[in-house]
Design a protein around this nucleic acid. Sequence first.
DNA 1: ATTAGTGATATGTCAGACATTTAAAGGGGA
DNA 2: TCCCCTTTAAATGTCTGACATATCACTAAT
Lengths: 274, 274
Amino acid sequence: MRKTEDNSQVIKVETGKKHQVRFAPLKARRAFEQISAEIKRMIFSGTLKPGDALPSEGELAGQFGVSRQTVREALRRLELSGFIAVQKGASGGPVVVDTILKSIGDLFLDAFQLKRMTTTDLTKARVAIEKMILKHAFEANDKKTFALMRAAEQEAERKLAESIPAFEDNLDFHILLARATQNYMFVILMESMMTVVAHFHSVLRIGTNTIRSAHKAHERILDAIEDGDEPRAQVELEKHILAVDRMYKKVKKSSQTEQAETTWTGPAKSGSLS
Amino acid sequence: MRKTEDNSQVIKVETGKKHQVRFAPLKARRAFEQISAEIKRMIFSGTLKPGDALPSEGELAGQFGVSRQTVREALRRLELSGFIAVQKGASGGPVVVDTILKSIGDLFLDAFQLKRMTTTDLTKARVAIEKMILKHAFEANDKKTFALMRAAEQEAERKLAESIPAFEDNLDFHILLARATQNYMFVILMESMMTVVAHFHSVLRIGTNTIRSAHKAHERILDAIEDGDEPRAQVELEKHILAVDRMYKKVKKSSQTEQAETTWTGPAKSGSLS
DNA sequence: ATTAGTGATATGTCAGACATTTAAAGGGGA
DNA sequence: TCCCCTTTAAATGTCTGACATATCACTAAT
């Protein structure tokens, strides 16, 4: 008595044979897809907000009238998409979160590796896109966000003084710059690219010196922004990104020419698979 | 006798208490995460290529020494990420594919809706990014891809003559343009944005007239490219994108002013959930 | 040669069970 | 009263076994 009740009207599409009309592809045949879609709808509509706890797997299974396994497969999807997080233990369970940007970034990184892109591709794209974003940031002139950028750099300086490593904070500057455009589309793009950058910084084990010089570059860019000097900001931004690119190439060269280009993917281990 | 054999060396990390050193976050505690990571590694390394069939769920379970359910949760992840596709029935099972760009696009669309972006944001980003991409395409001067674009438009014209609807083919032009830059990073960006565009075209029920005028715009852009006239190409491209944007606003206005802005998300249905 | 039927295969789902993790409640000592 | 330790309950993570369902490949009948 499960299914065949909420997708009753779409079944008879098969009667339309030949290629006269094109129907939508009969979405979500599988139960777990319908469940994840339903929960996603509730998040989109605002019924479920980040922080809200979802019922436990068992309860969800009961409410949807499916088994726990089916619910779990739905949760796996929502989890990977960045809509929910799951915690074990008492008072654990699925919770609505909003880490979709991280999910996009992770997939972006996968694509980067799968398509065997190079740091040169990355840098070229960064130069072009970030300069364009900087232009839009000047147009939007969002002084509040500019202030946040300045605050972030002061925080970075403090951490540098106490020699606290801050690998990732270093990239917030760029994401905030995208935010200053007031167009979230740019934020997504920047966050995606920064995920790839963060990956390189992690793999290449960038040191304090690199972080410090990046920090100083950020300050120069900010100075130019606050002076309203767009051309100077553009020049400083491009110099900064190109400097980071030179660092990539230097590290790569110092550790077996092309080794570093493939290492992060990891070699194929003894395959137990087919 | 399952587990506690391939993750033996990471267990003792817990001895490092206080906050002296920072460890990597002990990746993939859950079995299905390790499995999906392992299969992903094989795809990255080239051991598994698109078209290759993976063993069935049962066999995978046996080889990894886990249950079928655990394998399934791993497959759900790989599926959503666009690394594999799964088919039912005899000679079915998981197959390696490469639809990661589609996966990124889908997530992009989710983010678009979740963050409640507007078509204006989309259009502004498109104008800025596509013009930038066009510039890079001129630099790369990839005549082979330009020829593909021409061929695609001729095909579009043929379909128009026979009044075969071609909603999505219409966007190939832009993706091919990104491809002409020879930088895959731009292809990912364009594909992501085009997924959002395609969604609007689907929701707004684009008509033949719109497709035709877009086709003609594409031809004008191509003409300019083939003439080596970059400024004209830039102007035509911008005009084209802005024309599409006007169409959005027209359709939106003609069907309850702001209704169309929220409808695609779908209203919250009678929630059976908390 | 085309069509209909049949069997094998693999996914989709259900049911029940146990292990493990984790937070919160409870209890004892200072 | 406060803190530490233990207990306990809740929830996920995983296993086993089973059945339903979809689909391809093969076969047989027209």
